[in-house]
Simulated scan of single mutants.
Amino acid sequence: MDVRHYGWMLLCATLALTGCDDDAPGNEPALQDAVAYVGHWAAEPDWCARDGEERMITISPSRFEGHENVCEMTATQESENVWQGQLDCSGEGMESSERIRLQLENHESMTLTWLDRDDAEVSLMRCPLDP
């Protein structure tokens, strides 16, 4: 299935479960809009099919998963196609907390900025659903 179809299916499912009323209690705008950045992302195309250090990352509305770490993520939308996330991570016996910015260039590419790492940027591409 094409990644774009997966995104639309996820959006439809989210809308069906939450309803269309944006003012409903518990209907957080950041969670609704998060569908745009949800998926598998990689810095290089061949990383989409690899395991190990040079591999894809998985981003959900509330989770950021990379090589040997898992982060709970709280994201807020800064502007159209830009979100700031707070990551609370654990991996390899350590815990950390840091901030990121996710800026979608289009549906297939994104710039990830590590705000607590001197604004280091990584360009990411969306991975196919089934690498």
Results as ranks from 00 to 15, higher is better:
H5Q: 15
G7N: 13
W8C: 14
W8E: 15
M9K: 15
L10S: 13
L11W: 09
A13T: 14
T14A: 13
T14K: 10
T18E: 05
D22L: 11
D23Y: 08
P25R: 03
P25E: 11
N27S: 12
E28W: 14
P29T: 05
P29V: 05
L31Q: 06
Q32H: 14
Q32C: 07
D33H: 12
D33C: 10
D33I: 05
D33A: 15
A34Q: 02
A36T: 13
G39D: 01
W41I: 00
A42H: 11
A43K: 11
E44D: 12
D46K: 02
D46N: 08
W47Q: 04
W47G: 00
C48F: 02
C48M: 08
C48L: 03
D51F: 01
D51Y: 03
G52H: 00
G52N: 01
E54G: 11
I57G: 00
I57A: 00
I57V: 13
E65N: 07
G66R: 00
H67T: 01
C71K: 01
C71H: 03
E72M: 05
M73Y: 03
T74S: 12
A75S: 12
A75R: 09
T76D: 15
T76S: 13
E78H: 05
E78Y: 07
E80V: 14
V82I: 14
Q86M: 12
L87M: 11
L87Y: 00
C89P: 01
S90L: 10
S90Q: 09
G91S: 02
M94H: 13
E95T: 04
S96Y: 02
S96E: 02
S96V: 00
S97F: 03
S97P: 00
E98Q: 06
R99N: 08
I100M: 05
R101Y: 04
R101C: 08
R101G: 08
L102P: 06
H107G: 15
S109G: 03
S109M: 06
M110W: 05
M110S: 04
T111K: 03
L112F: 14
T113E: 12
W114E: 07
D116K: 08
D116E: 09
R117V: 12
R117I: 12
D119E: 07
D119C: 01
E121H: 06
